[in-house]
Amino acid sequence: MKPSPFSYHPAASVDEAAQLLYELEDAKILAGGQSLIPLMNFRLASPMHLIDISGLAELSEIKVSETEVEIGASVTHSQVLQSEQAGSALPLLVEAEKLIAHEVIRNRGTLCGSLAHADPAGEMTAVISVLNGRVDTASVSGGRTIEATDLFEGPLQSSLREDELIVSATFPKLGPRTVSSFREVARRHGDYAVAGAVSVVEYDNNDQVQSARAAFLSVGPVPTVVSFDDLLRGTRIEDVGHSEIYNFLSSQLEPHGDLQASADYRRHLAAEMGWASLEACI
């Protein structure tokens, strides 16, 4: 229950962090550490070097533009939750943040860190997926943009290269006729969700569905995005109704079973959460 030895490198800049990540063998980025340190305590991870980016002012900003919300890599969950600017620009961020662990974890854990951790049970992996957001990275060979659809490769596996760190995550704001909602089931509030869904529904000028999609957490190796366009376009969610949505989702989702829930039970919960999050968008 103690981490194995490593060397600690507080980075003075993003450039220095990228340089260290490139030069040092078996190095990891430390931001809040709320996913990494448990893994290290269990010795499921034992990096030789940690590069601490938590003190970098250049990564500590939340920027809101006309169209997007950009969260720097050292911004904690609590800072996102407390940001009135981010909350009014994209209420879904706040709704999701409230579901992430407990305040004590949110006080150190970072939003970008939870994306880099790539846990399919993570709320933010689902949010960035359903919104088609992106992350920007830095490395000695230059930064790049990774779209959410390309970011997650498997459980705890992102498409980040070993010499690359996330510098920010960007979430598109929702349009004026677009509604979102997050629903999940956890044994206890703040625990990992057994299943959950976050829906985004865009309405046309006649208040009928223009497009609708949901991202599901804890039902596969990566966040699973399901489009409802064929089922809902040009109609209303309430007219299609619970049973059709439930059956559709049951046929689309292929969750795994584990100690918390059998595959069938998890499919049931995910389909119900999918419906509940859509219904909340009516």
């Binding site: 448990p38 938590s54 150190r108």
Partner: peptide
């Protein structure tokens, strides 16, 4: 020692954090 029980909670700059999920050096 993996952030679940809360016994090790201390305040850092006034905010509660898990001291078992925090490196002293940081």
């Amino acid at each position: 020692e993996h952030g679940v029980c809360g016994c090790c909670t201390v305040l850092v700059d006034g905010a509660p954090v898990r001291s078992c999920l925090t490196f002293a050096v940081a």
